[in-house]
Design a protein around this nucleic acid. Structure first.
Lengths: 224, 224
DNA sequence: CGCCAACCTGACCAACTGGTCAAGTAACGA
DNA sequence: TCGTTACTTGACCAGTTGGTCAGGTTGGCG
């Protein structure tokens, strides 16, 4: 009685999927407070009372949406691990983050909204998972610097730069579209954006010509 | 009767200032929908009905806040004009944008919120003023490229990179603070961030060693 | 002092929103 | 066929919110 069986998931799974997809769109566009459960239900094509059958409260639904997003990001984050070469590791990471911004802009917007409003429901994620992830990547970047593979930069600020630059193409896509004549970037334009971002950052940290990096180590105590 | 005189502004001016400052804080933290006029009035220290005496609707108040922010940004934008040297011009622009992010993070957050929600009230700004400003700066960057002062990059994406990276320190300051052990960046840390950002971007576009730039002009039709 | 315009505010209201509930229907196993 | 569980939904409710309004108070001017 605790668990029925595995071949009876269809109705519940299907409805939860419909609701979560609708919720992601509505939350992304209007924020937590701005979204209404009625609107989400309408977008999902079900009555509001039915939505509350699957997700007891608006906040529970919101948490599910946020968790889903966070997991997508963590997957991309593994690009960092597999490889000792900063050019390859960072190119891959930036490329994946750009792809996520293009493919799942809603998720990025929900996240941005949450941080903007001081993370009322995901503060624990920031303090645990994100923090650990960041610390370990900072260590990797420090090793690259010690090895002379890149110039000495503050690793945290390099990470923030990568995050902000790539997520900008999701969070601010409305502004980008408007400046692009009201039309979304074409695939070709987006590839150019990705290449521009990647090249500026990699060249900016001296990853392309690692022979110069050790010589250029001025102001060594710029790290905290 | 149409206009009284100029020496009777004190009460109105003072109250409008109080309300606008409170509104900027509340709108930044909760978004348009999430903010309540009652909360703003309380923050300003006046009854709600009095707020509606000065600003007839919530949206009118919001527009005033947004306009105020936009004008601050336009001032910083002029750093771009004064100078033909990309190192000097971009350093100054990035520095000013970083300072604004630190000094007026609320304004940046209101703007971010607005774009995130598809700019329901500032779409006209995007299509006119911001568009013109962007076009003219793109032209300047193109001239730098033609002159060999920087490497060939797509100017739009360079601008987006500067915007996103600098504004990140306002919009995502809660995330940054959390990753910094729950404390805001010290002045010294912030100066390091500013220097890191500036150096990566300037080195990334080859502004420091302009002798190499013309040689590296591959893929010349990457511009649309 | 009287007048008038600007300013102030407690009380109020209509609209909306998250969430509940009771009365269903569908589906499946025995 | 019956019983049970999962699912569906229109109607409803209590709390909140933007905005109004009538009846004030204040302060300057003649």
């Amino acid at each position: 009685m605790a668990q029925k069986n595995a071949n009876r998931p269809s109705v519940r799974e299907e409805n939860e999927r419909l609701i979560l997809e609708a919720a992601e769109r509505i939350f992304a566009e209007h924020g937590f407070r701005g979204a209404t459960t009625g609107q989400i239900a309408e977008e999902a094509g079900i009555p509001k009372a039915n939505l509350h059958y699957y997700f007891p409260t608006k906040e529970a639904l919101y948490r599910c949406v946020v968790e889903r997003i966070f997991n997508i990001w963590l997957e991309a984050a593994n690009s960092f691990d597999d490889c000792d070469d900063p050019v390859e590791a960072l190119s891959s990471y930036i490329s994946k983050k750009m792809d996520i911004s293009r493919k799942y802009p809603m998720g990025s917007k929900v996240w941005a909204n949450e941080i903007l409003h001081r993370a009322p429901v995901i503060q624990d994620y920031l303090e645990t998972i994100l923090r650990e992830w960041t610390d370990s990547r900072v260590a990797i970047i420090r090793r690259w610097i010690t090895a002379g593979a890149i110039k000495p930069v503050d690793p945290e600020y390099l990470l923030y730069m990568i995050w902000s630059t790539t997520q900008h193409y999701a969070d601010f896509n409305h502004q980008i579209d408007t400046l692009n004549g009201g039309k979304p970037l074409t695939d070709r334009q987006f590839e150019n954006a990705k290449r521009t971002v990647t090249e500026i950052i990699l060249r900016g940290i001296g990853a392309y010509d690692s022979r110069d990096n050790r010589a250029d180590t001025r102001d060594p105590d710029s790290f905290e």
